[in-house]
Amino acid sequence: MNIVVCLKQVPGTTEVKIDPQTNTLIREGILNILNPFDAYALEEGVRLKERCGGRVTAISMGPPQAEEMLREAISLGADEAVLLSDKAFAGADTLATSYTLARAIEKLGQTDLIICGRQTFDGDTGQVGPELAEMLGLPFVAYVSKIEDINKGMHLQRMVEEGHEIIELPLPAVITVVKEINVPRLPSLRGLAKAKSAPIPVWTAEELAIDMDKVGLKGSATRVVKVFSPQRVNRGEILQGEPEEQVKNLISKLGDAGIV
């Protein structure tokens, strides 16, 4: 089984602030990590390979430093990794990102399953998985919490609001996974050694023979026009006194509000 997992490098914390002077994100001093939600995608890919044989290829679109994260992916069980990096890819929204990933997956050759995380830690849209499926014309299932059976197709559990659905999915296909699906492993010593020396090819726009109008900022349908800090109005009142008194006070307030 040929498995591709799509990974993104993200800031290691969401505790980012806006510089009040310049109105921009302060990114200095923030370490980059593998998107926590993608760790489950990678782990599931490696587990499937261990179950059915095959290869796991990790791909990421990002700046040159994302190579570091792809090495981590190899230490965690990926057989190989490819970085898609080019100035022309910068500023991509989900549409341009999924287009670029799709062209890279086509270049990789025959793929049976593509696994993405449910969303990213920073952008948080969860749109790249489903958009990628459309760009490749493949069937798609989101929020997979368990892969039950693999034969001609796969039997999966999809998490929905009211419970779980059991779905049959023909391959090749694209899925996104939730954290309930597995517990990611730690890197093995062998993996760490392999990660150190593994070649990580970098594919540019030229290598992908890509339509330049569809990548990066130019290929993006959406644009960020403003960023700002959320406003939180403190409307609160801390109830004073001994617990008995606080509770009494609280109940009378709720009574006034017509709730109890």
Binding site: K17, I18, D122, D124, V225, K226, F228, S229
Partner: peptide, 12 residues
Amino acid sequence: TFGGNIMATIIC
């Protein structure tokens, strides 16, 4: 975005 730490206005 960023887990609610930042708000962004977006156009298409």
